[in-house]
Design a protein around this nucleic acid. Structure first.
Lengths: 189, 189
DNA sequence: GTCTATAGCCGGATAGAC
DNA sequence: GTCTATCCGGCTATAGAC
């Protein structure tokens, strides 16, 4: 039993903060950074703008907090996948197809953030560092060089985006097929 | 000698349209789609908003017109390259490396516009149609199926973006290397 | 801590004069 | 064809009541 059923001020504050972050994650995923309004974020969390501004300095701090969370989660995933051992390209292709649709919102957000980062060298450096992690993990998983990881990452992002534009053009089997071609050549049996 | 030094109505209209498109290309590249204002576009072209609206229905049509031009120019280039010889993959890889950096602003713009198009089915359909053109053309140039075109397109876009984030991670030779792997398999001699 | 109300700004689009 | 003037709506952020 907890000492009290009432939340302390600190706990209440943390809970509100979390609700706002969860709501923001959804709104950002749907509308992007510039397209999201703090008004809508607050409303989805069950609060009003005023409340939001007592917890965050504004939209930018909200976004950066979420980005930080996302990065650490992705890192954990990458390490778990890499820890599975040396898998075949085919199995990895299936995995990519599974996460492709789920990854769509962040794929778009990351690229929107890239534009934000371009004129800010220190932010761009942090972003480059963040992309190095999956690249290295994929290279290790595929048993190839760093450049193989880069190519597979490119393939993944490019296919995810095209699938979003035209679902029929990118069947989910194409993720595995592309990796297979990469491994053995297109004309292999 | 031309019949007159004065422009016909049709010529004058075409000239103004071109100036607006050129100005828009610059503003979109600098500020993105949502970040660009039609006001600024008109000003750079040497006109006012009112004039812009007599030539285009709005920002969206301005963008789609530019996108159409961009795609057709790239395709003309690609077809010229492919016409140079039978060894299409190697030559095409070099071509992709050449246009990669130049393509960066468009890469970002297309993705931003994708987000704009997502909740607008008819706009998304037009965008899907735009992507079908290079996909089919690439497939034909590479002598492969439609899905081969999709994969090469994915590769190109993914590599362009990673190169923008971290130039060292994507050497320009990687475009040709990736196509070579795709053709013959990674471990081929 | 959270609310309501509003200031202040900016952007896309339109109407009508010339 | 192009201009000026304006409407309309949405946004971030703040002030002050409860």
């Amino acid at each position: 039993m907890s000492p009290s059923t009432r939340l302390t001020r600190v706990e209440a504050k943390a809970r509100t903060r979390r609700r706002l972050l969860d709501a923001a994650a959804g709104i950002f995923a749907e509308h992007g950074f510039s397209g999201a309004s703090v008004d809508e974020i607050a409303a989805r969390a069950g609060y009003t703008i005023g409340a939001l501004y007592t917890h965050f300095s504004g939209k930018e701090e909200l976004f950066l907090s979420l980005l930080e969370e996302h990065v650490s989660h992705r890192l954990r995933d990458a390490e778990r996948i890499a820890g599975d051992g040396p898998d075949s390209f085919a199995a990895f292709g299936e995995f990519l197809a599974d996460v492709a649709d789920e990854h769509v919102p962040w794929s778009l957000l990351e690229l929107e953030f890239l534009r934000y980062a371009l004129p800010r060298p220190e932010v761009l450096a942090r972003l480059a560092e963040r992309w190095r992690i999956p690249r290295t993990a994929i290279a290790r998983l595929a048993g190839g060089s760093e450049e193989v990881g880069t190519v597979i990452l490119a393939l993944f992002h490019g296919l995810v985006l095209q699938r979003r534009i035209d679902r029929a053009a990118v069947p989910s089997t194409l993720f595995a097929d592309a990796l297979d071609w990469l491994s053995k050549g297109i004309d292999a049996p």
